[in-house]
Design a protein around this nucleic acid. Structure first.
Length: 692
DNA sequence: CTTAGGG
DNA sequence: CCCTAAG
């Protein structure tokens, strides 16, 4: 509690730059970011966890051998605080401190330096919360890729769409069996309580068998997950998707081809808990979206590695790597493939124009493992509309429908066998999130037939109260137009493919899901995000999705989490990629627009208040270190627009409204720093004059 | 690589 | 957000 309180401190006064301008190089040498990247997280996590506010989802690694006691932690924190206070003293005195909280507050960068020591403890602390934050866990029934009997009807997950509201209700699912390799059928039952508390799996048996030994060069194990995913409503818990790279992978194929399954969910009662977590080696999680549905190129690029293997390495080192990779990976195999299927895409002009081409094809088989359970024509996600509750009508010729659930399309996930269950969760979550938040469109089926003409009226189509609505079905399909939005970061193009286009009802499936997640998360855990910490909550990204705050946990040396989704098969036939205006084929596509959330703005403002307007790199490091998609240039630009926004009338503002309070702070800070700069210049002039 | 600014 | 000149 005490800690939490500390966290809530507000503006701490402007901080005069160490030595304006002239010290850039000097500043660089100072490993300001020394421990910030990774450790800072830990520190924060710790604090938040202790405060009971932050829910961590992470690897359940038991490696917490040398956990610190609560006492020790406190000591560390206290020390940090003292130190910070001392450091801050000078600057604060001379500077304005309008926010009134100039008392003591510690900075995370300080505390962060203790992170290494805290890490283990964090684990201890976080364990209790691990599951809590994984509310979205979609438990899946897994089975070998092939048509292993009985596997099909185990899938029960569904996605519930609340009566066509634009909210996605994520409900959930029950059991999950993982079949590892072609051999022993290891089963992992994962149960997700209705409460939203998710997977109980602490240890997956995935790497236990010999053939799946955690050896570095082992070929990826293939795990097929046959399922339906019913997503819980706590979307705010959706973790982001940042997974560093590694080697051994386990592939999970989550399919929706359980045609046998009724689609009804039945709570599983079995829960297997495993004694210890998965062993960890390098891990690389590759997510495969079934070729016929989505394809996601590796998102692990520059920043992906940033915190991955950089536990100790200096920042700059990483940065370099990052940049290099960014360039070198442009030729990622899946990135730029695009195929056309004129005939079938004909009614998708829009898509093509949008820069996405798709080559819907109906009869390809489905997954890499050879099992092609899903009829290709089937939509990626099908919905169960049947049942008594399914449809009924009202007097005024309105058709009322109740969609009970949607099936999630097949997902193929490749994950190192050494990965933790936590990362597995995240991976699956990511995949699901990618689908849900990445852009879906709804397909309508009537008596098994897809209705493609969006212009027909329901009546014309036969979806009227006079007809058997039982025969009406909906499907969630990848929406080429939206998909790239969420999961597809600049570095993780979200390739998707769909079979025959059957656009119909466009359902506003919150492309903002991910975004919201971030926000809510921030809100819940970070009332007043201290500098440097907010950043950790941002991003993710989606990647998206947004890599949740738990990143730190996953930072154990060896694991990087690379999240790569690639089509399980038939890549060529299905790849859908953004098409550039036929200029240079290798032209880099413009990054997707990602409006700053209020929380990000908050973080930015706070950081700028403290650091000033000329130190964007530090601002970035401090407040957006983990927001991979926010570059310092972005921050600078954002500040620019913020200042502008703050100056114009509220009526002229667009986008998500920024609290006036923040805008005021923007102006204040801007004014202050402008003044500082002016002073600085005056001084210089003066000194020069004196010299002459 | 960072900054600062214009586009 | 992008692009670039400058440092």
């Amino acid at each position: 509690m005490v800690l939490q309180k500390r966290l809530d401190y507000g503006f701490n006064g402007y901080q005069v730059p160490p030595t304006p301008r002239a010290t850039r190089s000097a500043r660089r040498r100072v490993p300001f970011r020394k421990n910030v990247d990774d450790n800072q997280m830990c520190a924060f996590d710790l604090l938040a966890t202790v405060a009971g506010k932050l829910l961590l989802e992470g690897e359940n690694s038991p490696s917490s051998g040398n956990a610190l006691t609560g006492k020790e932690l406190c000591t560390i924190v206290k020390d940090s605080f003292k130190k910070e206070q001392k450091d801050e003293d000078n600057p604060s005195k001379a500077e304005p401190c309008d926010q009134g909280t100039c008392d003591g507050s510690f900075s995370f960068s300080e505390l962060a330096s203790h992170a290494p020591a805290l890490r283990h403890s964090l684990k201890e602390f976080s364990h209790a919360h691990i599951d809590d934050c994984w509310g979205l866990a979609s438990v899946i029934t897994t089975s070998d890729c092939s048509e292993k009997v009985g596997s099909a009807d185990k899938s029960k997950s569904k996605i519930q769409l609340g009566s066509f509201a634009s909210k996605l209700e994520v409900g959930y699912q029950e059991s999950c069996d993982f079949t590892v390799g072609n051999e022993n059928k290891k089963q992992i039952k994962i149960e997700s309580p209705k409460t939203g508390n998710a997977l109980n799996v602490t240890k997956a048996d995935i790497c236990s068998s010999d053939d799946l030994a955690v050896r570095d060069r082992k070929p990826p194990a293939l795990v097929s997950v046959n399922n339906r995913v019913k997503l819980p409503s706590c979307i705010d818990q959706i973790p982001s998707s940042s997974f560093p790279a590694c080697r051994d992978d386990v592939k999970l194929v989550i399919r929706d081809d359980d045609e046998n399954s009724s689609g009804c969910s039945q709570p599983s009662t079995t829960t297997k808990t495993f004694g210890s977590p998965l062993c960890i080696g390098n891990r690389r999680i590759r997510k495969f979206f079934s070729s016929k549905y989505w394809k996601v190129t590796p998102k692990l690029k520059d920043e992906e590695h940033f915190n991955a293997d950089s536990e100790i390495k200096p920042v700059y080192h990483n940065r370099k790597i990052c940049y290099k990779r960014r360039r070198s990976q442009r030729d990622y195999p899946f990135k730029k493939r695009r195929l056309y299927d004129r005939s079938s895409v004909s009614n998708f002009e829009g898509i093509s124009r949008e820069g996405i081409s798709s080559s819907p094809r109906k009869g390809f088989s489905c997954d890499a493992s050879g099992s092609s359970a899903t009829p290709c024509g089937a939509s990626g996600i099908s919905a169960c509309v049947a049942g008594q509750h399914t449809s009924f009508q009202s007097r005024d010729s309105h058709v009322k429908l109740r969609i009970k659930s949607f099936k999630v399309p097949e997902l193929v996930i490749e994950i190192p066998e050494s990965a933790t269950v936590g990362s597995l969760k995240r991976t699956v979550m990511d995949a699901v999130t990618a689908i849900l938040g990445g852009g879906l469109r709804v397909g309508v089926l009537l008596q098994g037939k897809k209705i493609r003409d969006d212009n027909k009226t329901l009546l014309q189509t036969g979806i009227s109260h006079n007809n058997k609505l039982d025969a009406l079905g909906f499907s969630l399909e990848p929406n080429p137009l939206q998909a790239p939005q969420s999961l597809c970061h600049e570095d993780r193009p979200f390739l998707l493919a769909c079979d025959t286009p059957r656009p119909l009802t466009r359902y506003p499936l919150a492309p903002s899901v991910v975004h919201n997640v971030v926000q809510q998360r921030s809100a819940d855990t970070l009332p007043d995000p201290p500098l440097s910490s907010l950043g950790n909550f941002i991003e993710s990204d989606h990647d998206s999705a947004p890599s949740p705050p738990d990143m730190s946990i996953d930072k154990s040396p060896t694991h990087s989490r690379a999240l790569v989704a690639v089509p399980a098969m038939n890549v060529e036939a299905l790849a859908v990629v953004p098409m550039r205006k036929s200029k240079r084929s290798d032209a880099v596509q413009r990054r997707i627009r990602r409006p700053f959330s209020v929380y990000e703005v908050e973080a930015l403002v706070q950081a700028v208040e403290k650091l000033g307007t000329g130190r964007w790199r530090e601002v970035k490091l401090r407040a957006f270190d983990n927001a991979k998609h926010r570059t310092y240039v972005d921050l600078k630009d954002k500040w620019k627009t913020l200042v502008h926004t703050a100056r114009i009338s509220p009526q002229q503002r667009r986008g998500e409204p920024v609290p006036q309070e923040l805008l005021d702070r923007v102006l204040t800070a801007h004014a202050y720093w402008s003044q500082q700069e002016a002073k600085q210049q005056l001084k210089q002039q003066h000194s020069e004059t004196c010299r002459l």
